[in-house]
Design a protein around this nucleic acid. Structure first.
Lengths: 226, 226
DNA sequence: AACCTGTGTTAAATTGTGTTAAGTAGCGAT
DNA sequence: ATCGCTACTTAACACAATTTAACACAGGTT
């Protein structure tokens, strides 16, 4: 599917060792965990309530000051109603009481990630990076990288938008009118000629890779061959 | 805020009466619940495992045949490891064992809905602190911190306001006119040039973090890439 | 072949940005 | 009051991004 989710585990007594499907950073107390949180980007945090220096609840509050969005799961030995509610009030996504099986914890983490990574997809919507032979194209950063020469070219906004459309329709015809209405809003004569100019620019950028080509489909549009 | 979430509750022994914040439909057995599910659109389903006619697990499987996405919470009297795992395997989002408090159930429902209704996140209040790669930015204090070097830079008012706007629109285009009218009130030529100068200043401040970039969108504005 | 329309490419023209440095105004300290 | 500092604005210059123009050629039609 994708790269491993980055997991912050704040826990002191026993190593849960969630190695299986996650890229886990273990911190032995609340302060270490807080420092670690600030230095990295995590997809999810699993916090033990009982910890030295800073307990899980206060840690969660500090994390929430920085980031309202990252999922938080509490682990606790206590099953007291008020503790559980307090956990959720700080914005927790789950609260698991010991003892629990490792499999259950993993399922619960995955259940949450399923919801949060989907949002990342729906927001971003599309692919992050495209591979075009020896080139990789990052439409977010508008950068085209020649992996062999280790050269990077910054693309302009229009170049990048057009190449992104072509990549999304790789090996299919990208219709002129569609591209014009998407990128230029209006599909009049001058914008159409402008687009021709940008096709030329893209061809120049990609000319080193013979396996990649932007071909014209007469009267229809363009097709990116990979 | 928004409209009440539509909740399907499949439960037989006692009426949980989740009326508070939800638009709840109660069904007394699994078959009724299944019929009800097909007739309506629900935001979330809460299913008791032990039910007449069709148990919660089979009901969940049937629901998943129709809809892979709707969140499902199981309620169960049993806390057997295998039952819990079986619940998650059918794609559950949570599995709550009795006895539990009504408040906890509501918190757990809300925790899931928070993730599935995207609007809550994007519309939600402003952040106190932003993470920008190795930097954290506190718009209240107007301080930009390099967490690795442990260096702090005081930002000026304009620098801070502009960076805050960019952060609020991270990975989206921040339109020039919008920023000008927000920060400079008037969007005349000179203020526009002034803004350019501040973009340069911010870029200098952030130049150590290559994963963060302020790129120009010609004729539109700027985009903060994180 | 003669024609029309669509495309490829280059270059000029126009408008938008990036950056540095000089200018101005406000403010607290001396 | 004046000095020194800071935030901010204005000016100046260089250059980038996009559009428009110009000309050559390609593809399909009659």
């Amino acid at each position: 599917m994708e790269t491993k989710a980055k997991l912050l585990l704040a826990e002191d007594d026993e190593n849960l060792g969630i190695a299986k499907g996650f890229d886990t950073d273990l911190f032995g107390d609340g302060e270490l965990a807080y420092t670690g949180f600030k230095k990295n980007e995590y997809n999810i945090c699993v916090l033990d309530i009982m910890m030295p220096k800073k307990d899980g609840i206060s840690l969660a509050r500090d994390i929430r000051l920085i980031n309202q969005n990252v999922p938080i799961i509490f682990l606790s030995a206590k099953n007291l109603k008020e503790d559980v509610l307090e956990g959720f009030r700080t914005g927790a996504d789950d609260y698991i009481t010991k003892p629990f099986s490792m499999e259950e914890l993993i399922f619960r983490i995955e259940a949450i990630l399923r919801r949060t990574t989907q949002e990342a997809n729906s927001t971003g919507g599309e692919q992050n990076v495209f591979k075009l032979g020896r080139f990789t194209f990052d439409p977010r950063k508008q950068i085209l990288t020649n992996e062999e020469k280790d050269e990077q070219v910054k693309l302009t906004t229009k170049e990048s938008e057009l190449l992104r459309l072509l990549c999304n329709n790789a090996n299919k015809v990208l219709e002129r009118n569609f591209a014009l209405k998407t990128i230029w809003i209006d599909d009049n004569y001058f914008n159409a000629r402008s687009m021709d100019v940008y096709i030329t620019k893209l061809r120049k950028h990609l000319k080193e890779e013979t396996s990649v080509e932007i071909i014209n489909v007469h009267g229809k549009g363009y097709k990116l061959i990979v």
